[in-house]
Design a protein around this nucleic acid. Structure first.
Length: 650
DNA sequence: GTAGGGTTAG
């Protein structure tokens, strides 16, 4: 008993040291058990397996699977632990391996837990295949299909795999469905796109607790039905942190930052203590909105309230600071984390450096990540390739791409191919970019072709641009940005007839262009400027200031708006409007008028910054001795003393 | 000693 106590303490201390599991810590724990002779003790071995379930890389998990194969006489409980761990892993189908072993075992039998965990494995995999159906029939054979927990998991499994009818059938055949089963069916309806059906089921429910309402909120939010979510939310007599988090995250992801902030303020007004989930939700709204000051306030609050020991909170802070233009603060959060860095932390840091054009540093952080023993995943490589393409590191990008597939065995997704096309294209190696697409093992999607078209526009390659546009016309004929990109290529070459032709086509097909907007935060209030909006007090003030700025730039720096720059505009803001009305210029002018001298102007734009605006920002930073940080759709530009951090490579 | 439905960061 004493020994057990000591071992348990040892385990607890090991677990405490590593709230992220690696192969190394797993081996340490196993060694610890071995030395004390407890490696064959089912209780402690079970603890080890559970520990592996929280593994940040699957190395530890597969190692524990090997240990399990040599474990003498495991019982059903131990099988269940392993099945559960594997069902949560990035390879959830591997959970079927021990399940099948258990089925074939001469003396042991699977119980309701075994079935529930194995079904969860299929649900997490997301495809039914034969295995899902076989599992269902095995559950039937063993008499567990009418078990309420197994039944509910069956509903979820079918829903996750897109089999709405089977999900409903399981529910209808349930002898006594409880509220959890009802909730699962509501989720299944949403999951399969039947928003009205979900409401119908919700109306028919005999009992509705708080979770049922939260299910409705989550469903509406995922279906982008924010108005309906708000209506349900207002009808709720009880709300918990999940309800609030759902609203905050939902509105934030829908681009309604003000509303997201509003829900958070309301939560605070009601005296509710926010959880790390609602906090990361607001932080992500700050990140998207570029609300630097608000982000800092939240950071201070979280520090005082003791949230900084939670890894997700740190990750959200890294992302918020970097997307608000302060990569050094992101770095400081990253370096001072008390929580162990997981793959998201490393990737966020790499992405932060990438966005700010610090490609070499991003690669350096990646090497440190490799040394730390945290395994990179597909997203890590997207950030890395993005870092390379935005810093012109073509060779490094190619090397990393092959490392990803050859060393890490990560199957490249469309996004990775897209990054490679961008990498070659930006570096003016358009032919290689085109050949790369032609050699892809998966069919290139419209986004990949569009990436190539974008780089053709950047480098003025008409021939290739026309070829690519023809492909795009087959796949996505009414995409306005493709037309704009091609017209930019023509404009740069002075082919005005072709420009006019494209314009006509766009009008004929009534294609809507994405309106450009820019935001700037002043005294914690976010001001949004939209190109071509009706004048109001704020825009009048911005226009006045802008006129003054332009005059100074003309007289002191000899600035003249270039026609070429007008046409270089990647995505529309009405061209017949003069470039001086571009929203980022208005935001900068307004910031210059309102913010105290010496304060950095932080601007967020939804589209890519245009060439003329880029020049103007450089000049303003010189003439007014002000630092301007612009986040556009794809990266950051930090203007200082007449230069931009992107070194005009964008 | 293990579960099922709702919210989290790249």
């Amino acid at each position: 008993m004493n020994i057990n106590k000591r071992v348990e303490e040892g385990l607890v201390s090991l677990l405490g040291k590593c709230n992220s599991t690696t192969l190394k810590t797993t081996k340490q724990i196993h060694a610890h058990l071995y030395v004390t002779g407890l490696h064959t003790n089912p209780f402690f071995f079970g603890k080890l397996l559970l520990h592996c379930a929280s593994s940040i890389s699957d190395h530890a998990l597969h190692y524990s699977l090997r240990l399990f194969q040599h474990f003498p006489n495991p019982d059903t409980f131990m099988y269940n632990t392993l099945i559960r761990s594997l069902s949560h892993s990035s390879t959830p189908l591997t959970s079927l391996q021990p399940f099948i072993q258990l089925l074939r075992h001469p003396t042991l039998f699977p119980d309701s837990f075994s079935f529930a965990f194995a079904l969860k494995g299929i649900a997490n995999y997301g495809h039914l295949n034969k295995s899902g159906i076989q599992l269902h029939s095995q559950a039937f054979r063993h008499g567990f299909d009418s078990h309420i927990f197994v039944g509910t998991t069956l509903i979820s499994m079918y829903a996750e795999c897109g089999c709405y009818e089977s999900a409903t059938k399981v529910f209808e055949e349930m002898p006594e469905p409880n509220v959890v089963a009802w909730n699962a069916v509501v989720t299944a309806s949403f999951r399969c796109g039947d928003v009205e059906g979900a409401w119908g089921v919700f109306q028919r429910m005999p009992i509705r607790n708080l979770t049922s309402w939260n299910v409705m909120l989550a469903g509406y939010v995922k279906a982008s039905e924010l108005g309906l979510a708000r209506r349900v939310f207002s009808q709720m007599t009880m709300r918990d942190d999940v309800s609030w988090s759902t609203m905050i995250v939902g509105f934030s992801q829908g681009g309604s930052f003000d509303e997201a902030f509003g829900f958070f303020r309301e939560l605070r007004r009601e005296g509710i203590r926010p959880s790390e989930v609602s906090l990361t939700g607001v932080l992500s709204a700050c990140a998207q909105a570029g609300a630097f000051e608000f982000g800092k306030i939240l950071h201070g609050f979280m520090e005082k309230a003791g949230f900084l020991c939670i890894v997700s909170v740190n990750n959200a802070l890294i992302d918020t600071y970097s997307k608000c233009g302060n990569v050094d603060m992101a770095k400081s959060v990253f370096q001072n984390m008390s929580a162990a860095k997981c793959v998201v932390s490393w990737t966020s840091m790499i992405a932060a450096l990438a966005m700010h054009g610090r490609g070499d540093e991003a690669i350096q952080v990646f090497y440190e990540m490799e040394e730390s023993g945290v395994r990179p995943d597909g997203v890590t490589f997207i950030s890395l390739l993005y870092a390379c393409s935005h810093s012109g590191l073509v060779q490094q990008g190619c090397d990393l791409f092959s490392k990803m597939t050859n060393l890490y065995g990560i199957e490249p997704a469309a996004e990775h191919y897209g990054c490679m096309v961008d990498l070659y294209g930006r570096a003016a190696r358009l032919q290689e970019a085109y050949e790369f697409i032609c050699q892809m093992p998966i069919p290139p999607n419209a986004i990949i072709w569009r990436t190539l078209l974008g780089t053709c526009s950047l480098h003025g390659n008409i021939e290739l641009a026309e070829l690519v546009k023809a492909r795009l016309a087959e796949m996505d004929p009414n995409n306005s940005s493709d037309h704009v990109l091609l017209s930019n290529v023509y404009a740069v070459a002075g082919k005005w007839k072709d420009v006019a032709g494209i314009r006509r086509t766009m009008i004929e097909h009534s294609m809507k262009k994405t309106p450009g907007w820019s935001m700037i935060e002043i005294d914690k209030v976010i001001y949004r400027f939209v190109a071509g909006e009706k004048p109001n007090e704020v825009t009048e003030e911005a226009h006045d200031k802008l006129r003054e700025i332009m005059l100074r730039l003309r007289t002191e720096e000899g600035y003249a708006p270039q026609v070429r720059s007008v046409l270089h505009d990647i995505e529309e803001e009405e061209k017949e409007d003069s470039v001086s009305k571009h929203s980022e210029k208005l935001a900068a002018a307004f910031g210059l008028a309102k913010l105290p001298k010496g304060r950095i102007l932080r601007i967020v734009k939804n589209l890519r910054v245009c060439g003329d605006c880029h020049t103007v920002m450089k000049l303003i930073s010189k003439v007014y001795q002000v630092e301007i940080i612009v986040r556009d759709r794809s990266r950051f530009h930090s203007f200082k003393n007449g230069f931009c951090s992107c070194r005009d490579y964008w």
